[in-house]
Design a protein around this nucleic acid. Structure first.
Lengths: 205, 205
DNA sequence: ACAAAAAATTTCCTATAGTATATTTTTTGT
DNA sequence: ACAAAAAATATACTATAGGAAATTTTTTGT
């Protein structure tokens, strides 16, 4: 496990160095073509794109359509994604207890939300999991906007929630969406749409 | 009308010959937009691409250029590669905040589970949220039983999961159930029953 | 260094991507 | 069930992608 992780990291370092920049296909294509010792006509023959177009694309004089990119990828025998991505990326990470059943949870009313603390009987936890039914429909319904130095992970179990913050634009989240943020800036949640909105969230303690 | 349509299709057929790929961005974009509850005008405003063009792209009537795709990706707060690589499309990060949409998450295969790291591009988090499809049906399928000094909070999004540990009896958890435990004792998960089992879990880092 | 050949770029053209607006279709409220 | 509003699609146009061939630049052999 440790070994794997280190291998991976070493690998990553070396890969990302070799493949330079981010989102300019032109230089990448040029590099790729030259790397294979291909002329523009070779590339043209392989991809079905004219040499002139290829030249323009490489020099950024022309923004290829996705179908052209697909044909080029084909010609280079690679998939579109690896053609466009600098192959670094890919993050890593890869193992007393308390159970709360679906219908349970310690109720904890607060302001405009109906909270249930999960696994509350376990003390000295490093995280606090909470399930909340968001009631407020408008930010006006909040008197205070909470603010702590904790970090929050939240995921939407049902409905639509809008996250409001002093430093970001309002952000709409739907069922299955997740968000991670630090709560040092004031923030509140409102719900939206017909269904009830339920959020499962965990905060560091 | 019929004439136009046929004209168009004939036209397109000849153009797309080699290109029309298994990877269609159209439906993907449509799904993405709908997933956020956006109208075409919302998408247009966010990306700077006209609603009509967006509509055509979604329906495959038009092959967008890479620069258009880049603008769309921007509007959706994701990078181009994720937008094109679909099921594991990857999200948004603006400062100390990170969003993972329902269909997204960085894939990370490990042993007997199919993991998706949520909000992975945010570094130095105090918690690591992960969504896992539990594949193993029997503890025999595990070679090693992981063990760390982290704490784990888990909740069952669907299916039935059995938690095995060296120090407790196996414990069955169903959809909506939650559990908090420290992972200093070896433990593994197996699934049970016909449905696929999906666990959302968070570990301290 | 020069001519010939090969590769890259430019030109000029056609096909299609993308825009603004009109129209149709779907949703919403009564 | 209907009218009004909102969303999606079609139309007509402009801007630009992409192709064939001409031109320029670079390479190669002598």
């Amino acid at each position: 496990m440790n070994v794997d992780l280190e291998d991976f990291q070493a690998n990553r370092r070396q890969v990302s160095v070799a493949s330079d920049q981010s989102d300019e296909i032109g230089p990448r294509l040029h590099h790729l073509r030259k790397g294979r010792g291909w002329t523009l006509q070779d590339a043209s023959k392989a991809s079905g794109i004219s040499a002139s177009a290829f030249s323009k694309i490489e020099r950024g004089e022309l923004s290829p359509t996705i179908s052209t990119i697909q044909r080029i990828a084909r010609g280079f025998d690679m998939d579109v994604v690896s053609l466009l991505s600098d192959p670094d990326a890919q993050p890593t990470l890869l193992g007393r207890r308390s159970v709360t059943r679906a219908s349970e949870g310690k109720p904890h009313l607060s302001g405009n939300c109906d909270n249930k603390l999960l696994c509350a009987e376990l003390k000295n936890k490093r995280m606090t999991p909470i399930k909340t039914r968001v009631v407020a429909r408008d930010v006006e319904e909040y008197d205070v906007w909470p603010k702590t130095d904790a970090e929050i992970f939240m995921t939407i179990l049902s409905g639509t929630v809008v996250v409001h913050s002093k430093i970001y634009e309002p952000l709409e989240l739907h069922e299955g969406d997740s968000m991670y943020y630090d709560a040092s800036a004031e923030h509140v949640w409102t719900r939206k749409g017909p269904e009830e909105a339920v959020v499962l969230w965990v905060l560091t303690s």
